[in-house]
Design a protein around this nucleic acid. Structure first.
Lengths: 217, 217
DNA sequence: CCAAAAGTGTTAAAGCTACACCCATGG
DNA sequence: CCATGGGTGTAGCTTTAACACTTTTGG
């Protein structure tokens, strides 16, 4: 079920960059390889493309397997060759954006999954470090002109949580007042009139995205 | 050598969206299919992926075959399945930007190539109409924050020619003075001090791109 | 009453849009 | 001298960036 067992080497694989924001830092879901090649390294989850279905639905199925959720934002990133140094396989990479609090990791010891901070990655199998870097770059760019952040947050969230998502992916802080103005002006989110208490300070308003499907501005 | 002959149906194909600006309108290079499926329809040029090389270099080789030029801007677009309705093949689409005056079309009658205005396309084989539309959308977006237009123009060009490229791909006209200011401020092009006479009016300055490699702003 | 994060408005700078007249050439 | 496209500058508007104080809560 996982990436590039050797009998797949002449075939097409689907690999997933599953991103979630944990503690204000973007994290990626990796699995621990128990098979050669690249045994004992961490790698992006993936699997053989099942030719009886589309690439997209192969990716979706794998995503559900790994996260337990099926209503995530999923987008094709690119297709590479030379994933496996010596072999002649092609891998179609997708990225998915998750609210990590809803993700239920598979509990198995074989191909055990775990979250890793994308800014502190070990050396991964194949070219996976590079695939992840490109995914983050694409996501950060797309945040600026779409509502895809909806997929990284729970249904109700504070403006602070939303800002944390943007800052984590852009890798830099932004002014709180300007951020708030831009988001509200953008017309993608609205206050729902509830507040959330969270410690010894003023409670925060809760917001939702008007649409929980991709909107490109 | 061309797209999706039936023996390729379980395999990976590379297809090319080769774009050139002709008479102020974006054109795409198509080939006339002489084989089933979709016999006698026009289609994007392409071929089987040769597994002994990377996808990128397969695409480059095909591009040289079709255009005679190898120093073009070439970028992966996406990978689709269901190109061929019934089959289980994947096709990796690339787009290339050409100065059509340098392109030398293959002269063969089999799979005869020709340029088509992308705004007046007939119904093409497979999902090719849609692939072309997405290529144009991507290119128009990328013109705004890169120098890829260098690949659509000869080495020396007038600002009018450059503007024609932008207008053709955006599908709308822009103010001549503002366009000039933005381009010169962008620092991607420079005047070479020569002019070109071209009819009963003042001669135009010639410009070049400072770099003839992709620069993303 | 203290600490902590939420909430809010204004000003300056930069960038974008709209717009009209003169210039060099060929016929 | 006329027609054609090349070349240039400015003013208003919109967008972005910078910046500090008050509010509500828990302890």
């Amino acid at each position: 079920m996982n990436q590039t067992k050797s009998e797949l080497s002449t075939d097409v694989a689907v690999i997933l960059v599953i991103i979630g924001i944990i503690g204000g830092a973007p994290h990626v879901l990796l699995v621990h390889r128990t098979a050669t090649p690249e045994q004992n390294k961490w790698a992006l989850p993936g699997g053989k493309w099942n030719k009886s279905e589309s690439l997209e639905s192969s990716a979706e199925k794998k995503l559900v397997q790994e996260t337990g959720i099926d209503t995530l934002y999923l987008e094709q990133l690119f297709t590479t060759t030379g994933l496996d140094d010596e072999s002649s396989s092609a891998a179609v990479a997708y990225f998915a954006l998750t609210d990590f609090t809803r993700v239920i990791l598979r509990a198995e010891e074989e191909w055990k999954p775990d979250w890793f901070n994308v800014n502190e990655l070990p050396e991964l199998a194949f070219n996976n470090n590079q695939v992840i870097r490109q995914a983050i770059t694409r996501i950060a760019a797309k945040l600026q002109y779409s509502n895809i952040a909806y997929s990284l947050l729970p249904e109700e969230f504070t403006l602070r949580q939303l800002q944390d998502v943007y800052e984590a992916l852009e890798g830099q802080t932004v002014d709180r007042r300007n951020f708030r103005k831009k988001m509200l002006a953008g017309g993608l989110i609205e206050a729902i009139g509830k507040t959330r208490r969270d410690g010894a300070h003023r409670p925060a308003q809760l917001y939702t995205f008007l649409q929980r499907e991709a909107v490109i501005l």
